[in-house]
């Protein structure tokens, strides 16, 4: 009986490379759009968390705690299997973007909140004293400073988001993990399929993680 990594299995994979390429491209698209959504939600809810208005703070806490303390799989299942019962049918790609976007938005909200709170209060006061509005002060004074501190953890969130798009395989998400899974469950060539898939994720995540580490070291040096 041939081993799990027999040569002909690799050949079969190479013949069907376009299946993996398609999944890879979908994963990149899903990650890019998911990250955009996550950043938007994260900045919005993160700033709500820094507000002095109790209701805004509460909204931040509800979003962050609810999303961070339930599994991503359940959130995806809710979007994919739950919403249709309410008459909302979303294409699986949209489920993916919403799923990882909302999930990582909650983590990014905490990163943003911590970043903004790390900027001394005097910065906002100096900006106010010069006639800046709240948003003007945020955009020109506070957020650029919060950004420096937030970059490394934000990059880590981007890495996690890319990896977590693989959860979409459970609802036929059309991304890399799904294609690897369905290709190999047809021919049972699991070995090469999962190795290549793992390497493809690595090729996306490793450079980002390295970049984050380097920035972190730079921050330590400068502070």
């Amino acid at each position: 009986m041939p081993g799990p990594f027999a040569g002909f299995k690799w050949l079969a994979l190479m013949n069907d490379w376009s299946v993996f390429a398609e999944g890879f491209v979908q994963t990149i698209l899903l990650s890019a759009l998911g990250l955009t959504l996550a950043l938007g939600l994260g900045i919005f809810f993160g700033l709500l968390g820094t507000s002095h208005v109790k209701l805004f703070k509460l909204l931040n806490r509800v979003y962050v705690e609810f999303i961070q303390n339930t599994p991503l799989v359940i959130q995806i299942f809710f979007l994919y299997h739950g919403l249709p019962h309410l008459g909302i049918m979303l294409p699986v790609f949209v489920v993916g973007v919403l799923g990882v976007g909302v999930y990582h938005g909650a983590y990014i909200a905490e990163v943003i909140r911590a970043g903004v709170e790390s900027v001394p209060k005097g910065q906002l006061e100096a900006a106010y004293s010069q006639g800046f509005s709240y948003w003007g002060a945020m955009i020109h004074i506070v957020l650029p400073q919060a950004k420096r501190i937030s970059y490394p953890p934000l990059t880590n969130q981007a890495v996690n988001l890319i990896k977590n798009t693989s959860v979409l395989a459970m609802v036929a998400g059309g991304e890399l993990m799904y294609h690897a899974d369905s290709w190999s469950s047809n021919n049972l060539y699991y070995g090469p399929s999962y190795v290549v898939t793992g390497l493809l994720y690595l090729s996306l995540c490793f450079p980002l993680a390295t970049y984050a580490k380097r920035m972190e070291r730079k921050l330590e040096v400068s502070s």
């Binding site: 001394p120 005097g122 910065q123 006061e125 100096a126 900006a127 106010y128 004293s129 010069q130 006639g131 800046f132 020109h140 004074i141 650029p144 400073q145 420096r148």
Partner: peptide
Amino acid sequence: RESVAMVFQQFNLYPHKTVLENLTLA
């Protein structure tokens, strides 16, 4: 506030801007 300027105990210069940018931003 545009015509009422304030100088603070802790200076509160904008650390991510150069000295001249601190002066020209507002």
